[in-house]
Amino acid sequence: MKKIGFSGTLDPITNGHMWVIGEARSLADEVLVFLSENPAKKPKFSAEERKSIIALSCAEQGWDNVQVVIVKGDYTARAAKKHGAECLIRGIRTTADFDYENLIQQTNVDVLQGAKTIFVMPPRDLGSVSSSFVKALEGPIGWNWIMKKFVPGPAYHAWVLSWLRKEWETLWDYAHADAPSIAHADQWFVRLTGSTAYGGPARHYHNLDHLVHGLCEIRVWAANTQPDPRDVDIIKQAFWFHDAEYGAVHGDVSNEEASVQLWLGSSLCHDMGDAAELIRATDHFQEAAVEHRLKDIMLSVDLAILGQDEEVYQNYARGIRQEYIHLTEAKYREQRGGALAHLRRKAEQGRLFGNAYFADQYNERAIENMTRELAQLAG
């Protein structure tokens, strides 16, 4: 077969969709992915954005025979035939899927004189993966770690950036800000999420995932404890910047102080001092050098990753190792082991999470996770 088509909204494309495209590649020389612009569906990403995400996802797999076509004002089955694809391929997950797709296929052929349909059944681990399933994951703490399992890297990156954009716009009240203020904030969003900060290629843990997780922790903590909204904003401001400078050489200046200077230089608001002092308090190995009324919250948010489920923690541990890939294995085991031993002692003494809400949520599991990693480092 020379050409085969695959159609869908693909908002976002999932690993299930990628599997179907892979099957299509085994059947034809060229795969055409048809994206229909359907305003009634109100997709999260525009057709052009989805086209880019799909192209990047296929390129990531080394698939050079997949082309993405945006269909405007036509049925995809008819458009497929016009582009030389006699067949469309569709994934069937359930009997309900088959009944629906069979009706669509009859309409495509008998009414529209369009392309016929070939049905394939995905493997069991992809049987429940759909765009609507992935969308429903967004929100609770850890949603990003779960979503990552079900979508290709470019789709995940685009989704996380979109989520962070909404958080950023809310923090700086875009709805009521003037155009120059919005433009200025936009520049800083791009800088913080780009390759010189959290989006950097060497950021294997202190990255966009870290931002999403921490901001979710702050939101859920605020919802459960009802703090002063102004304090919530200060914590968010500090969290956005606290690891913006990480792992670089700043002379005698610490990462925390370099991040403070970046924050102060941003001029994003009139009162910068409160968040600046809070960033300075994020050094986990200083005990009392920097005091701040919100320090316990900030440090608890930053350390909450230690109390996640085992799979998330293991991914975190691997990310930390990659960030310190320049260290020999022996040196890494020594330094990482020392840091973990320090943090575990604090947890055992009930001092790791200075805020009771986070201590109740995470202290016990943090001890379990760190104990397990320490045993692995010693093994």
Rank of each mutant, 00 (worst) to 15 (best):
A40W: 07
Y332C: 02
L303A: 04
P201I: 09
D64L: 05
A185F: 00
I235Y: 07
G139V: 09
R219G: 01
W172I: 05
D283E: 11
I367L: 02
N108V: 09
V151I: 14
N108S: 09
R78N: 03
D178T: 03
S7E: 02
K295D: 04
A222N: 04
A258Q: 08
L126G: 05
A330D: 15
N65S: 14
G91K: 03
T76N: 08
V249R: 14
D252G: 14
D360M: 07
P123G: 11
N102F: 10
V66D: 02
C216I: 03
K2N: 14
E256R: 06
I297P: 03
Y205K: 11
G153H: 11
A80N: 11
G5A: 15
A80D: 05
S267M: 10
A356D: 13
F98H: 00
A288R: 12
D243K: 11
A158T: 13
I218G: 06
V120I: 13
Y174N: 05
G379Y: 08
F119S: 02
F239R: 06
E334K: 15
L192P: 04
P140T: 06
N144T: 10
R165S: 14
L278A: 10
H210P: 02
K2G: 13
T76L: 01
T196K: 13
L126D: 08
R344Q: 14
G214F: 04
R203E: 06
G251A: 07
K51D: 02
Q106P: 01
Q113P: 00
G16C: 07
I305R: 04
S259T: 08
V66C: 08
S46C: 00
A248P: 01
L126T: 05
E323W: 09
R50C: 05
A24E: 09
M18T: 06
S266A: 15
V66K: 03
G199C: 12
G319F: 08
A289H: 12
A244S: 14
F119E: 00
V20M: 12
T76I: 05
E373I: 02
N315A: 15
D252Q: 11
L161Y: 03
W143T: 00
N255E: 14
L211E: 01
K149P: 00
G62D: 13
Q322T: 06
F133L: 06
A288W: 09
T95A: 13
S128D: 11
H326K: 12
H176I: 10
V66I: 14
Q314R: 15
D271K: 12
D231N: 15
K2W: 11
D233W: 02
Y246W: 15
S7P: 01
F150S: 01
A281F: 09
Q113F: 14
G338D: 04
A356N: 09
A185R: 07
D173L: 13
A136W: 00
D29S: 13
G153K: 14
I305D: 05
S195T: 15
M147K: 07
F133E: 08
A378K: 15
D309E: 14
T282I: 06
I53H: 05
Y75V: 02
M272W: 00
I70D: 10
R50P: 02
